[in-house]
């Protein structure tokens, strides 16, 4: 199809598109346009403020391509979101599992428990003496003293009697 034939086929469309030429900005708009541009240049405007995302994507091309892929195929976005959720879920499960670094402590605790199981009488008497079983690797056999100073001897009962009664 040659160019003239093409133009003829779209004659009324081309006439309609002429309407776009009549769309004009507000009166006086171009009187101040160049001064605004120069003002922004003088102020050291880098043109980043209004479109900082574009500049960010310009610097991180992979990020821009990733987001472009999301735009083109929403299935990528769903897959990416699914992968993130899975990662988060695995992270939560892993965080709730007993920490590997606490394994020696657990072993000691188990040792202490088995020791108590072997000699229940000993553990009972130790309990009476105030020995507290602990999960600490070092098993203290010393009776635990009270953490607070008892001042019962200094306390005196007080009674109030009103003069009218």
């Amino acid at each position: 199809m040659n160019e003239n034939e093409n133009e003829n086929n779209f004659e009324s469309l081309c006439r309609l598109l002429v309407l776009k030429r009549h769309e004009t900005p507000p009166p006086g708009y171009f009187n101040y346009f160049s001064s605004q541009v120069l003002q922004r240049i003088r102020a050291g405007d880098t043109g980043k403020s209004a479109n900082w995302l574009e500049d960010l994507f310009g610097q991180a091309l992979w990020l821009g391509k990733l987001l472009q892929a999301f735009d083109v195929k929403p299935v990528f976005a769903s897959a990416f979101a699914g992968a993130l959720c899975l990662l988060l879920f695995l992270g939560i499960i892993y965080a709730e599992r007993p920490d590997l670094s606490s394994q020696p402590v657990l072993q000691s605790a188990t040792t202490a428990a088995s020791f108590a199981a072997i000699s229940p009488s000993l553990s009972q008497s130790a309990g009476q003496m105030g020995i507290v079983s602990s999960t600490d690797p070092v098993l203290s056999l010393q009776p635990v003293a009270s953490l607070f100073v008892q001042q019962n001897s200094l306390a005196q009962p007080v009674s109030f009697s009103l003069p009218g009664n």
């Binding site: 006439r15 309609l16 002429v18 309407l19 769309e23 004009t24 507000p26 574009e54």
Partner: peptide
């Protein structure tokens, strides 16, 4: 335009006086 893909909001300029006198239009 790629960034605002799904956020299309038209804010059209007014048609000038000549549009009403364009015989084709």
């Amino acid at each position: 335009l790629k960034q605002r893909k799904n956020r299309i909001h038209m804010s059209l300029d007014d048609l000038d006086f000549n549009a009403e006198h364009d015989p084709d239009l």
